[in-house]
Simulated assay, not measured.
Amino acid sequence: MNHISAGIAFTGSGSAAPAATLDNATLSQRVETSDEWIHSRTGMRDRRIAGPQETLAELAALAGERALAMAGITAVELDLIVLATSTPDDLFGSAVSVQHALGATRAVAFDLTAACSGFVFGMATAAQFLRTGTYRNCLLLGADVLSRWVDWDDRRTCVLFGDGAGAVVMQAVEPARDRLLGFELRSDGTLNHTLNLGFVGEAQPLAGDLTYASGSYRSISMNGREVYRFAVERVPEVISKALFRSQLLPEQLDWLLLHQANQRIMDAVAARLKLAPEQVISNIPRYGNTSAASIPLALDEYVRTGKVTPGHAIAAAGFGAGLTWGAAIFRWGP
Rank of each mutant, 00 (worst) to 15 (best):
M1P: 08
N196R: 13
L197E: 06
R179F: 01
L323R: 06
I239P: 01
D209A: 15
G93I: 04
G133D: 09
R331H: 06
A271N: 10
V238F: 07
R30F: 12
L78A: 10
L210G: 00
A6S: 15
M44Y: 02
R264W: 06
M266G: 15
A109V: 04
A321V: 09
A165Q: 05
A57K: 09
A71S: 13
D178A: 04
A231L: 02
V108M: 13
R225H: 13
R272Y: 03
G201T: 06
V169K: 06
P250A: 07
A6P: 00
E77H: 05
E174Y: 01
L78T: 07
A293Y: 05
V280Y: 04
W152M: 02
V235A: 06
S94L: 09
N262T: 00
G322P: 04
G12N: 08
L62P: 00
P334V: 01
S246C: 09
D300K: 07
D254C: 02
F119Y: 14
A69N: 14
N24S: 12
D153P: 01
I295W: 09
R156G: 11
L297C: 09
S86M: 12
V308F: 07
Q260Y: 10
S40E: 15
F244D: 14
Q204Y: 10
G322Q: 10
Q279L: 03
L191C: 02
A104S: 09
G133W: 11
L181K: 13
I265D: 04
D153F: 11
E301H: 13
F10W: 12
M123K: 10
G93Y: 09
G224H: 14
K307L: 06
G318T: 03
E54M: 05
L68E: 12
N289D: 04
G215S: 09
G162C: 03
D267G: 12
K307N: 02
A167H: 11
R155F: 10
F129Q: 10
G164W: 08
M44V: 13
A317N: 05
V76G: 11
L139V: 04
L139S: 08
P205F: 13
G142D: 01
F161G: 01
G51Y: 13
N262D: 06
L83H: 14
N24R: 08
D151A: 07
T211F: 13
Q171I: 02
Q260V: 04
R245K: 15
A327P: 01
S147K: 08
L195G: 03
A270Y: 04
Y302T: 00
V269R: 07
E77Y: 04
N196M: 13
H3Y: 12
Q171F: 03
G306H: 12
A126P: 00
L257S: 09
T134M: 14
G215K: 12
